[in-house]
Amino acid sequence: MTALFNFQSLLLVILLIICTSAYAHSMAPGFMDRNQHGILGVFWKSARIGERLSPYISICCVFMAISIFIGG
């Protein structure tokens, strides 16, 4: 089953994109800021979400890790 049809997997993919984009933006801000539009703009927007909502994103990551651990 793909991540698009399983809601928990879709949330996990979205959280991983947000976390990875925020980390990549902290390492190479010039590259991310140049690509604010188009396909790569999704990663720029994800990085903004990860930077501005980092406490909530980290709490969501912990909850997802617990749910995956419990759910198997």
Rank of each mutant, 00 (worst) to 15 (best):
E51F: 12
A65S: 08
I57Q: 01
S21L: 00
M64Y: 09
I66G: 12
A24E: 10
A24Y: 05
L40N: 03
Y56P: 05
Y56K: 04
C60W: 05
F63C: 09
S58V: 14
S58A: 15
G30Q: 07
L40I: 12
F31Y: 10
I57A: 00
A47C: 03
D33E: 08
S9K: 08
M1L: 10
K45G: 13
L53H: 03
L10M: 12
Y23S: 10
S21P: 01
H37Y: 13
S9Y: 04
T20H: 10
I17A: 10
I70F: 03
F7Y: 06
G50M: 01
M1Q: 07
G72Y: 15
S21D: 00
R48K: 12
Y23I: 14
S54F: 14
S26T: 12
V13P: 01
I39E: 06
W44L: 06
I14K: 00
N6K: 09
M32I: 03
F7G: 10
R52T: 13
S46H: 04
H25R: 03
S67A: 15
N35D: 11
I18F: 06
F43A: 03
F5W: 08
I66L: 10
V42R: 07
R48Y: 11
L10S: 06
A24P: 05
A3L: 13
M64N: 01
F63Y: 13
I57L: 03
L4K: 15
S67E: 11
Y23L: 14
L16E: 07
E51Y: 08
P29S: 02
I49R: 02
S46T: 06
L40G: 00
L12Y: 14
S58L: 15
G38C: 01
M1G: 14
V42P: 02
T2Q: 12
G50P: 02
S67D: 13
Q8S: 11
I14P: 04
S46R: 00
I14L: 04
D33Y: 11
C19K: 06
I17Q: 01
S26G: 05
M32K: 04
S58I: 15
H37W: 10
Y56R: 06
S67M: 14
F31T: 14
S21F: 03
N6R: 09
